[in-house]
């Protein structure tokens, strides 16, 4: 699997990453190398093998439905880049 510039641009857009023009080629090469490395997997027949998502095949625990968190807005918004009237601010989204 070989990735070209346009693949890198497409992936970078999906991941919302700004990539400098001059770095695209290197990323394309690095990513191609990594994909070549992982392609070793394709030689293995894994038919009928159950994918393993959790090491111990544990199951989800349930939380009882109780409100345990109160209003922590001021505390939690101390780390926010831009807040106005309790709302997080982002550049205008046009719908």
């Amino acid at each position: 699997m070989s990735l070209d510039r346009s693949d890198v641009e497409k992936i970078a857009h999906l991941a919302r990453l700004n990539i400098a023009e001059q770095d695209i080629q290197e990323y394309a090469e690095n990513l191609t190398d990594i994909l070549d490395l992982v392609d070793q997997m394709q030689a293995i027949d894994t038919t009928d093998i159950k994918p393993m998502a959790h090491p111990m095949d544990a199951i989800q625990r349930l939380r009882s439905d109780a409100v345990t968190e109160g209003n922590q807005r001021d505390h939690l918004q101390t780390v926010a880049p831009a807040v106005e009237a309790g709302l997080f601010q982002v550049p205008k989204v046009i719908e």
Partner: peptide, 8 residues
Amino acid sequence: EFPSMTGI
């Protein structure tokens, strides 16, 4: 709510 921003 705001002229040039969207509030979340």
